[in-house]
Simulated assay, not measured.
Amino acid sequence: VPKLNQATVAAQSADIDAVSGATYTSAGYKKSLQSAIDKANASADTGAGAAEGSAQARTVTGDAAKTQYGAVQVRITVA
């Protein structure tokens, strides 16, 4: 997961490579990450959570993605 976190920050998107040896976790991570990004974009489009004229950091939780080894859920902070 730390490698996936680093890749996400570097890419600033869910378009990241899987981590060798963690294929199922990587796939679940990417799916949950994309849902969190989609939720963040949807709330930004409607102005939800935004202060008057300023970008305010907020935390968004992605949907839990089921994998062979259990659920993976990503929480991101966006500004």
Rank of each mutant, 00 (worst) to 15 (best):
V74K: 00
G49L: 08
T46H: 02
G53Y: 08
K39I: 10
A64C: 11
A44F: 00
V72K: 14
G47R: 05
V60T: 14
T67R: 15
T46F: 00
T67D: 12
G47Q: 09
A55D: 13
D45F: 07
Q56D: 07
Q68S: 14
S54L: 08
A40C: 08
A44Q: 10
T46G: 02
G49N: 07
V72S: 07
V60R: 02
A50S: 13
T46W: 04
T61R: 05
T46D: 06
G70I: 12
G47A: 10
A71Y: 14
V60L: 08
G62K: 13
T46M: 02
Y69P: 10
G49E: 06
G62D: 03
N41T: 12
T67N: 08
A71D: 14
G49S: 10
R58Y: 04
D63R: 05
S43M: 03
A55S: 10
A57I: 05
G49A: 10
A42N: 01
A71Q: 05
D63K: 09
A57W: 01
V74L: 04
D45Q: 15
T59M: 11
E52Y: 01
T67P: 13
S43F: 03
K39W: 08
R58E: 07
K39T: 11
T61L: 07
Q73T: 08
A57T: 06
Q56V: 05
G62W: 07
N41E: 15
T67Q: 11
T59I: 11
A65Q: 15
I37H: 01
